[in-house]
Every structure is written in C-alpha cells, then in structure tokens.
C-alpha cells in the first residue's frame, strides 16, 4: 500500500533534482529545513525521529541533500521526510513536509470496526505485518 502523507504523496516519487528544488524553495522562503525518519508511519504517529538537528542558516540545498543521502544509506528500511519550518510570528509551524524516501516494502494497514458507547460504530487504522 502506498503511503500518502504530506505534500506530493499522490505523485510519483520525487527525483533528487525535484527534492533539491523543493528545498531551494523552502530556503528561499526563509524556512529552516530538517530531516525526520520513522519505522511507524501510522497517520496518528506525529512523533518521527529527528535525523540530526534542524538545519538553520543554510543558503543552499546541497547541505540538506548531503544529510538526506546519509540518512538513506543509514536507514534504508525507514520512511524519511523533509520538513520546512517557518518561524515567522503568527505561523511558527511546519509549512512544508514531504516524504523523500520509502522503504522497499511499504507499511500495510487494516481498518478495524470499533464498537463505541450506544452502539456507535467507530473505525481505527491498525498496522499489519507486511
């Protein structure tokens, strides 16, 4: 199952040139770029692991690409995403996040029906082994 989270996830995987161009855009907006990885890509999991510190004061995408390549080599079995954080007052949030690397075998999920109070039916996503 193809994981669709963040920007561009319904498109074919971005090439390195395209990733680099997106980072260039983020840096041009003055956003701080960071890299995060996870082995638990459940949509409710907002706590991805940081790959090093967020990269402030960068002028060029080459620095991020260097880290991204290092992360891919070290953690080929994990999802890797790129975040761009806008520190402008009023925003102070991640403005752009997209998946930059997927494991060879993607995570699979199943939909569970859950009984709630008063026979209300709820649904939950459950990770199933690949």
């Amino acid at each position: 199952m193809r994981l669709t989270q963040g920007a561009f996830s319904f498109l074919p995987d971005l090439t390195d040139t395209q990733i680099s161009a997106q980072i260039e855009f983020a840096l041009a907006q003055g956003w701080a770029v960071s890299i995060e990885t996870t082995d638990d890509p459940h949509p409710r999991n907002t706590y991805w692991d940081m790959w090093g510190m967020p990269m402030f004061d960068l002028k060029d995408a080459a620095g991020v690409m260097m880290e991204l390549k290092a992360a891919r080599t070290a953690l080929p079995e994990r999802y890797i995403r790129i975040n761009a954080f806008d520190s402008t007052r009023g925003w102070e949030t991640v403005r752009l996040a997209f998946i930059a690397h997927r494991p060879p075998v993607e995570a699979r999920f199943a939909l569970d029906r859950v009984e709630a109070e008063g026979r209300v039916q709820r649904y939950a996503l459950r990770r199933v082994p690949a």
Binding site: M53, D57, L58, K59, D60, A61, A62, G63, M66, E67
Partner: peptide
C-alpha cells in the same frame, strides 16, 4: 564531527 558538518552545510553554495 557534527560541528564541522554543520559549518560545511552552511557554507554549501558559497
């Protein structure tokens, strides 16, 4: 190593 790499990343493109 992290300190040197951070400086190098900042200098990329320049």
């Amino acid at each position: 190593a992290p300190k040197t790499k951070e400086v190098l990343k900042r200098a990329m493109g320049g």
